[in-house]
């Protein structure tokens, strides 16, 4: 045993070092294991197909056709995102309600003829009676409406026909944000069953003009050419 104590002497420093390192490593391993046990995810698999995600922002589905329709001489457009989260008070005052989460930013498509901006296109999804209705709104540089198109809707035929009637859509042309927006008075009227969808379209259009008027003074967060 004396020999044992003699043989321990030269290696005692290494022994302490190895013991303490092993202890630290084991402790780290236990902590790592415990952490991994607590954070296991509940969704086990990637879906078998890439699930079609919903579109939180309404896309502009036919930019070329719409530019031709609303802006003669247009050559290109440029996207701009305006941050409105710091302008909630003026927005609320003009909208007559609290802005929604989606209204903290506005994606606008600025249309150009060569280098000259000739207007803006805005899109929005509104709640129709039987499904979502997507609006495409063309606005002149001075803020008046150049045209409105329903790029997507799933209303029954009679309602769809009333909403897509050229005379009714034309009743929006020339309107400004400060104008009256009463359905059937300031804007053309529609039949009874189409009324709720028509009201959603009127409210959506007016909201877009309010957002645009506030956004024109707001900072641009990014821009992209098309």
């Amino acid at each position: 045993m004396e020999m044992a104590s003699q043989s321990r002497q030269p290696g005692s420093g290494i022994k302490k070092y190895l013991l303490s390192s092993t202890g630290v490593l084991l402790l780290a391993a236990v902590l790592f294991w415990w952490r991994s046990q607590g954070t296991s995810q509940t969704i086990l698999f990637e879906p078998p197909v890439r699930v079609a995600q919903s579109e939180p922002l309404c896309p502009w589905r036919q930019p070329n056709e719409d530019m031709k329709r609303f802006f003669s001489g247009s050559t290109r457009y440029q996207t701009e995102t305006r941050i409105l989260s710091g302008l909630r008070a003026p927005l609320a005052a003009q909208l007559g309600r609290e802005p929604t989460g989606d209204e903290n930013a506005l994606l606008l498509y600025r249309v150009y003829a060569q280098q000259t901006p000739i207007g803006v296109v805005l899109t929005r999804r509104v709640k129709g009676a039987y499904g979502a209705i997507e609006l495409v709104l063309a606005v002149a540089p001075d803020g008046h409406v150049l045209g409105l198109r329903l790029q997507r809707q799933r209303e029954p035929e009679n309602i769809a026909a009333a909403l897509e009637r050229p005379e009714w859509l034309a009743s929006f042309v020339g309107k400004r944000v400060k104008d009256g927006w009463q359905l059937g008075e300031d804007v053309g009227g529609v039949s009874g069953e189409a009324r709720s969808s028509a009201e959603a379209i009127v409210e959506g259009t007016r909201s877009l003009l309010v957002l645009l008027s506030v956004a024109e003074g707001a900072p641009v967060s990014n821009a992209g050419h098309h």
């Binding site: 919903s54 129709g128 499904g131 979502a132 799933r154």
Partner: peptide, 16 residues
């Protein structure tokens, strides 16, 4: 699908 079509329980829905 509900988010895209802005539907919730009780709403009407149509298949054109």
């Amino acid at each position: 699908a509900a988010e895209t079509e802005m539907r919730s329980a009780g709403d009407r829905f149509y298949s054109p």
